[in-house]
Write a protein that binds this DNA or RNA. Structure first.
Length: 174
DNA sequence: TAAGTGCGTCGTT
DNA sequence: AACGACGCACTTA
């Protein structure tokens, strides 16, 4: 079941410049609702960034920008903006909430995530929900490894997963 | 050991 | 009805 009632039709879209490239953050009235990895493709003019976001969104964006730059530098962020995960199905939201309990520098397996949400056999479905995570890095789906500490997949590309794990000092099976 | 196959399982499209 | 960011058993090389 999808709940779009809290998702603004046209969320504010703001860039975050990092040494790794320009991420795009999107904000609803509830908080950060999406974070996109740097894209090689040029943004179209129709995707223009809104001129002057409200003060609250500017504060959220400042927090998010700082947090992202810390994370990419290998330091755990001290504060995050509110995360708006309301666009997901009930199942996805349960998975995403569970992912937020994985500590910096630690990993869970897909099976452990499935257990954490009380649905121990929905292992494969958990993988699907991880792939649908709209806020990578802050909702740390990169900390979910396959059984035997193998890498598993990553919708943002395995290079990003490897990079994020490395910044947290996480080791996994070759 | 490493790589490949088959199947259970379940949320999403 | 088909498809996965899975996991496990089992077979082959």
């Amino acid at each position: 079941m999808i709940n779009r009632s809290n998702v603004a039709a046209a969320p504010h879209e703001l860039p975050i410049s990092t040494p790794e490239g320009q991420f795009i953050a999107r904000y609803s009235k509830l908080g950060l609702c999406s974070l996109a990895f740097p894209s090689r493709t040029k943004r179209r003019p129709s995707d223009a960034i809104s001129a002057r976001p409200p003060a609250q969104i500017r504060r959220w964006h400042a927090t998010a920008s700082k947090a992202l730059r810390l994370a990419l530098a290998g330091r755990p962020p001290k504060a995050l903006p509110p995360l708006d995960l309301s666009a997901g199905t009930d199942f996805q939201q349960r998975v995403w909430r569970a992912l937020r309990r994985i500590a910096w520098g630690r990993t869970w397996s897909y099976g452990e995530v499935a257990q954490a949400i009380g649905n121990p056999r929905a292992v494969r479905a958990v993988g699907g929900a991880c792939g649908a995570n709209p806020i990578p890095v802050f909702v740390p789906c990169h900390r979910v490894l396959a059984a035997g500490n193998t890498l598993g997949g990553y919708s943002g590309g395995l290079n990003w997963k490897r990079a994020l794990l490395q910044r947290e000092g996480i080791r996994y099976a070759a």
